[in-house]
Amino acid sequence: MSATDTRRDTGPADTAAPDTVDELPRRRRSHPVVRVLRSSLAGRIAFPIVCLLVWLLAIRIVTSIWPFAVDVLPTPTQVFSFMWDELTGETLAPRNVYETFGISLRRLGIGMAIAMAIGTVIGLGMGLSKRVNAFFNDWVVAILAMPNLAWALFCSLAFGFGDVGPIVTVVLTGIPFVIINVREGVRNAPTDLYDMARAFGVSRADTIRHVLLPSLMPFMFAAARYAFALGWKGLVVAEVFGGEDGAGWTIKFWYDAHRAYGVIGYALLFVVFALLFEKFLFDRLSGYFFRWRPEVNAADVVEQRFDAPGVATATATADSGNGTHATTTGPKPERGAGGDETRRSHDG
């Protein structure tokens, strides 16, 4: 998301502004200071400041009406000093933040590995055979639409406290994305390249290594990205109900202790953690995996195909050519009509 975002940032953001609707032909060149104040960077900087102000104001107003609300409305200083304590390793919780996130990451990693392994096999089968597809399709959709709360609560009740429940939740939330992505990847495999490989007598192993894998790669990557984002959300819920440690358990710890600053501080740590992973790990990895493909950012292309907003809009956005909304609509790509579209074009 970061790459496309910043790229779009440099472009003229107000080309299609509603100003065009309310006939306003061209803004006159304004003073440079005014232009800086109007720029999107200024807005970006203003956002946290405004948030802080609103926060302080809300506390002031609410505590003047209900004096006892001080308990549940922490001040920003409380929250940030809590976060600082956490980051320096000083905490009242049983484990510090690094151990906690390490435990959660380990579970997430195990769950994702299982989901990728099973999902790839099923996805390959579904892409290659119509029968296998008919066999699994409805159940994949059903699992996809199930709220992670249901898996989390169920796994915590069925498997008890410990590692198994959260890991099973990660597998169940992540696997439909892997299956759907791999299936689309197989369906979009370049048949002409296979034909050519056969015509030139390329060995089977080489075909798999140089044709099938590279063509599946972007799809697998998109799958991993979604499985990570959604698996993380599922894992946290599962740990709240059925963990003895880990990130979800710790936020529940602060919740049960009725420390609002702890809950909000930990929530901010969650946001930071997710953003770090998205921006650094996945953008780096996608740069590394697709270095052989210089001209397109493959992950964007694939993701756009999956969660383009609708059949009608998929074509419209293809023209504007940015994958931003595709990545931002990320959490729920399942019925992205873009997927339906590719499916239909495949069948037809």
Binding site: R38, S40, I45, A46, K233, V236, G248, A267
Partner: peptide
């Protein structure tokens, strides 16, 4: 659509999309 407000709300939208519902529920 306004450039200033675009910068202003962009992070809000990113946070809104990426934050798990659980966190809002607890807060």
């Amino acid at each position: 659509q306004n450039r200033l407000l675009n910068g202003f709300f962009r992070d809000a939208v990113t946070i809104g999309v990426t934050t798990p519902g659980l966190i809002w529920a607890l807060i």
